[in-house]
Every structure is written in C-alpha cells, then in structure tokens.
Design a protein around this nucleic acid. Structure first.
Lengths: 137, 137
DNA sequence: CTGAATCCCTGCCGATACTG
DNA sequence: CAGTATCGGCAGGGATTCAG
C-alpha cells in the first residue's frame, strides 16, 4: 500500500496545479474539459474513434449537427491536438479527419465518463442491468 | 484478449446509447458531463474529495467563487447525486457538504481527465516530467 | 465537397444587495 | 452562518446564406 496525502480514495497527484484556487487554463483537468467542451464534441470524437471520417461522413453520422458547429468543433479539436486534418489534392476537394495519438488517448477518458454515468443512471427496464458497464464487450 | 467491435483501442461498450446520433440526456457520457458541467464544478468536487466542508469552508478555499455560483453548483451536485447536504439543528445554522458514494466514484474520472491534460500539456521546465502522472503519489 | 460569414436568441456567470 | 434575488454582459450554438 502506498501512502496518500489524505485518507480518501483516488486522490489527485501532488502537483501544484492540484491546489489552484480558481479555474485556470493551466490545470490539466481544465485542459481536458476544454478539449471536450461544447455540445456535440464527444459525439464527434466517438465517430473518429471508429475510424477516419470525411466532413460529409460526419454530417451523415450526426444529421442534426449544423455545419457551423461541426466546423467549430473540428477546429477546436485540431487546436487541442486531438484531431488531424488531411487535405488531399485534386478535385473535388477531399479532406479526412483522424484522431492524433493524443486523440486516441481520449478513449479511456470517455470510457471513464461513460462508466460513471452508466452506474449513476440505471438503464432500467429492470432486467438486464449487468452488461451496460462491461468494459469492452 | 477479449474481442472488440472495432479494431481501435478503448472501444465503448456495445450499448444502444453508444450509437445515439445526438446529445441526449440518456447517454451516460452526457450524464457525467452534466454533473461536471459549468465553471468551478470540478474544483468544488476536488475540495470535497479532501473531506467534508461547510459552506464557508468552500468559500474560503475558493475565494473568487461567488455565493450565487457556489450555491448553484452545490444544488446542481446534490441534484446529480454527487453531494449530500446535511443541516444540523441549532443556532447558528451549520451545514456540512459531503460526497455521496457516487460522488467519491468521480475520483477516478477526475484522475482520467487530469492524466490526459497532464500528458497533453507538458509541465516542462524539462527536468522533472515523470512524477506528474503518478497515480497517487 | 468542404467549409466560412452572418444573425439572433438563449443561458451562463459575475457583482451586488438582501434575508432566515 | 448560509444562503436567495436581481440584473447585465458575454459567449455558445442553431438556421441560413455564401464561397473556394
């Protein structure tokens, strides 16, 4: 057993940023939340976790997502180092979006978010509640 | 090795909600993000991960957080099943805020958020980069 | 096909003042 | 001590239109 700064489960690392007194952009938690920030963001990432996608692939997969928000999100994710944008020469213009290595590392993060939410709100037909939290299936 | 729905690391569970096409409140990821939603929320949770706190304890720990937002956040977290509010009889009024069991389970979630953010943006004086991602210390 | 520009409306959050 | 009431500024995001 390793010792802990306080007697509580799952403490945060002993980093100066673990003691900040306001939500600064330096805090690693804020960095991640900034990358995931905004509506639709996690769904775009989920699509890209399944493989590369073109702009219209994403539009087709998320029909209610408007062009403005989609390009906003993609720009935000590129900026955050989550997504890579690859334009191919020729006509018509073809662009592929893919996760960077950092982007793939968001998989476990989304998994953690999923797990907590799945436990908190039971799927609740009442019958088959055991499979929803299975890690991979 | 368990098999996977797609050949990518850290797939999501095979749940119908993993295929939603819009950000619905049913999605476990959305549930968790809703619990964490808004400025200051994670910092309030961090304080409570360190132990029970009174209202003024929280105000003292987060001096730039206004009364309005603090009570908003606490109400939000109570509503989300993360925080429990305990009033003690007598005068002056004494109230203690504590995490519920569900609230404590947010520890690993915040840890996952921390880890990704810590990797993505190096602390980078260049020297001591190995301890920042240590799980507990 | 892949976006960018604009408009407008809503909801967040910060500051201040007040109450049981 | 532990909050609520109110107001104003600003950013987020949806619909539509235009461009390379």
């Amino acid at each position: 057993m390793t010792h802990r700064t306080v007697g509580h489960p799952a403490g945060l690392p002993d980093d100066p940023r673990a003691h900040v007194t306001a939500p600064t952009p330096d805090c690693p938690v804020e960095i991640t939340l900034a990358a995931l920030h905004g509506r639709w963001t996690t769904l775009v990432i989920r699509e890209l976790l399944r493989g590369d996608r073109s702009y219209s692939d994403l539009r087709a997969a998320l029909p209610r997502l408007s062009d403005k928000v989609l390009s906003d999100r993609l720009a935000q994710l590129v900026e955050a180092g989550v997504v890579e944008r690859n334009r191919r020469p020729g006509w018509p213009p073809r662009v592929r979006y893919a996760l960077t290595p950092n982007g793939h590392r968001l998989g476990p993060v989304l998994q953690a978010l999923w797990d907590w939410g799945a436990r908190t709100s039971p799927p609740d037909t009442g019958a088959e509640s055991s499979r929803a939290t299975d890690p991979v299936h």
